[in-house]
Design a protein around this nucleic acid. Structure first.
Length: 590
RNA sequence: GGGGACGUAGUGUAGUCUGGUUUAACACACUGCCCUGUCAAGGCAGAGAUCGCGGGUUCAACUCCCGUCGUCCCCGCCA
């Protein structure tokens, strides 16, 4: 009995056809003289009817259990009047069994294969093959495929070539911790798994491939989060002879096509663009969630000469004063407000000022030190209304932005401004600084990576000036999630040299670390740029999931363990010897 | 490295704050029987838990304390 149809594809127009379906027993409803089976495959569920007249098949049906694997031949017929199930796509028809073959049995299940029963993630991961059988999960994995398929279609039509880059590659000093692979033929040397195919895709541009893409597996040995796995997939794109607008427009067209095809949602293009400085000022984040307001305002000017010493001296110290208004926040109790203060303190900010706006005036921990016009200015600038809670913070600019940004998000969630409402707010963040100063290591660092092209020409790239130099980088944000980012790259050796100089990377070590790209720039590198999108994150957002583990078939736990395979595991001493690695019988705690 | 939440039959939860009326409850799943139109089927009966693990406090611990393991969320980290 060879399968002729998928269960979920059958409809009224198949009535009268003899078909063969294969799948799993999703549920059994035994009425004594009549037995129904819901047969499930990846396409959906089909109701199977076993009638007592067909004695052989009926006896088999009496002994079926959940998740038995069946092959069934029978006739599709219309369901009798009044027995139509509007909840499933095949609800108007059913299959009357002629022949049934039990292809396999199934043990008692560790959890139910059902969309209605939640199970601990630990158990789901251990029995991932069962978890993946759940219809909702199958939908998500299929959606993931649809997205990647549509991205490929689009890019292929646009003339892009998919080209693979190596997984066994070279360790790079900057960025995340590398996964290292010892070389058997060259003891003491290591490959690294790529954190991204960055250098290779730039090489491909220099090789003349012009428009490249890849669904690239990337690896970073850093701590895991809901939106971070050790290995993840990025849609990696690079183009030659383009500027920022070309890349941005391509991605906008690509994403609107994907959302149209997969979700039937029209997203309007072009996406809003916001400068990095604006994002930090107004939202306290370089990945602002613009689905709700509650924007941050600066009050440094207003309090420059304030009699409230804490504020005026903060300004003269070079700090800033910023604040936001929490709608209906005055209902918060004293302890809830203390919670906010504690939250801000956790980041190292000294403390915050709060003002409850009431119909009869204001109420505050500190407002008695303010002049009346100062209070009025704050209230009106934040457009605060009776019932609102104003929060002000004076501290170093970066810290204030971070604290208020976190506070804004927390309040937005708490007050229900962020909900699963199928709203997709795309946003480009542009005009990033090229570098920022690392205070601990006392050196300049690239904000993106050292191959990002500066906006200014080469004469403006000096150690004195570098803090003010913007880059030709762009990040794409969706609902406060960093979907991806990219830049126009440096294609001229002189600029690249200057960047390395400022980053304190010597010619020698630049050669050693990025030598092959450095050399390649000398041999006719075209202007080029591109971007990488977090594919797992896109899938999570499209399917309405909070965690990318919900759209990854085989993810790892937060401690980077795979409960399905039990990886990672120890290996044989023999194997280690071949790799030239000394056998360590006991791990030494450093 | 740090902060927080959680861990109770196969699964999901309640009970824990305020220790003893608990012989640890409920739902689903499971087992047996009944049932010819159900569809997250229904009815009857039944089995299933040393309350993550170790220690402590107490006349008495699922409950309080300490430690430990695991899972999740967050900070650091992730160019």
């Amino acid at each position: 009995m060879k399968r002729s149809s998928y269960c979920g594809d059958l409809r009224k127009n198949n009535i009268g056809e003899e078909i063969v379906v294969c799948g799993w027993v999703h549920s059994r409803r035994d009425h004594g003289g009549l037995i129904f089976i819901d047969l499930r495959d990846r396409s959906g569920i089909l109701q199977i009817v076993f009638l007592p007249e067909s004695r052989g098949t009926f006896r088999i049906a009496e002994n079926l259990k959940n998740e038995y694997v069946l092959s069934i031949k029978g006739l599709i017929r219309c369901r009798p009047e009044g027995t139509i199930n509007p909840n499933i796509s095949t609800g108007q028809i059913e299959l009357v069994v002629a022949e049934v073959e039990v292809l396999n049995t199934c043990l008692g299940l560790p959890f139910e294969i059902s969309d209605y029963v939640e199970t601990s993630e630990e158990l789901r991961l251990k029995y991932r093959y069962l978890d993946l059988r759940r219809p909702n999960f199958q939908k998500k994995i299929i959606t993931r495929h649809k997205i990647s398929n549509e991205v490929r279609n689009f890019l292929n039509e646009e003339g892009f070539l998919e080209i693979e880059t190596p997984l066994l590659t070279k360790s790079t000093p900057e960025g995340a911790r590398d996964f290292l692979i010892p070389s058997r033929l060259q003891h003491g040397n290591f490959f690294a798994l790529p954190q991204s195919p960055q250098l290779f895709k730039q090489i491909l541009m220099i090789s003349g491939f012009d428009k490249y893409y890849q669904f690239a597996r990337c690896f970073r040995d850093e701590d895991l989060r809901a939106d971070r796995q050790l290995e993840f997939t990025q849609i990696d794109i690079e183009m030659s002879f383009v500027d920022e607008d070309d890349v941005i427009s391509l991605i906008e067209r690509m994403l609107s096509r994907v959302f149209k095809t997969v979700l039937s949602i029209d997203i309007s293009t072009p996406f809003e663009r916001i400068s990095y400085n604006d994002a930090m000022l107004r939202f306290g984040s370089d990945k602002p969630d613009t689905r709700f307001g509650m924007e941050i305002k600066d009050f440094s000017q207003e309090f420059k000469n304030s009699e409230f010493g804490v504020f005026s001296s903060a300004i003269s110290n070079g700090d800033v004063i910023r604040g936001l208004c929490i709608p209906n926040g005055s209902v918060f109790s004293r302890s809830e407000i203390d919670g906010l203060i504690k939250l801000v303190c956790e980041f190292g900010a000294k403390g915050l000022v709060w003002i409850k706006v009431t119909s009869s005036g204001v109420e505050s921990n500190i407002v008695k030190y303010f002049k009346e016009y100062e209070v009025k200015t704050v209230v009106s600038k934040l457009n605060a209304r009776p019932g609102d809670l104003i929060v002000l913070l004076a501290d170093e600019e970066k810290l204030v932005a971070q604290c208020l940004g976190v506070l804004r998000l927390k309040m937005g969630k708490k007050l229900g401004f962020i909900s699963k409402n199928n709203k997709f707010n795309f946003l480009w963040v542009v005009d990033f600084p090229l570098m920022n100063w690392n205070n601990e290591e006392h050196r300049w660092q690239s904000l993106h990576h050292p191959f990002t092209s500066p906006k200014e020409n080469i004469d403006a790239i000096t150690k004195e000036n570098i803090g003010r130099v913007k880059s030709r980088a762009y990040d794409i944000i969706l609902n406060g999630v960093e979907l991806g980012g990219g830049s126009i790259r440096i294609h001229k050796t002189d600029i690249q040299k200057k960047i390395f100089e400022i980053l304190n990377i010597s010619d020698e070590s630049a050669k050693e670390k990025f030598g092959f790209l450095f050399d390649a720039l000398l041999y006719g590198a075209p202007p080029h740029g591109g971007l990488a999108l977090g594919f797992d994150r896109i899938c999570a957002l499209v399917t309405g999931e909070e965690s990318i583990r919900e759209v990854v078939a085989f993810p790892k736990t937060q401690k980077s363990f795979d409960p399905l395979s039990n990886a990672p595991t120890p290996v044989d001493d023999e194997h280690l010897k071949e790799l030239g690695i000394k056998v360590i019988s006991k791990l030494i705690k450093l």
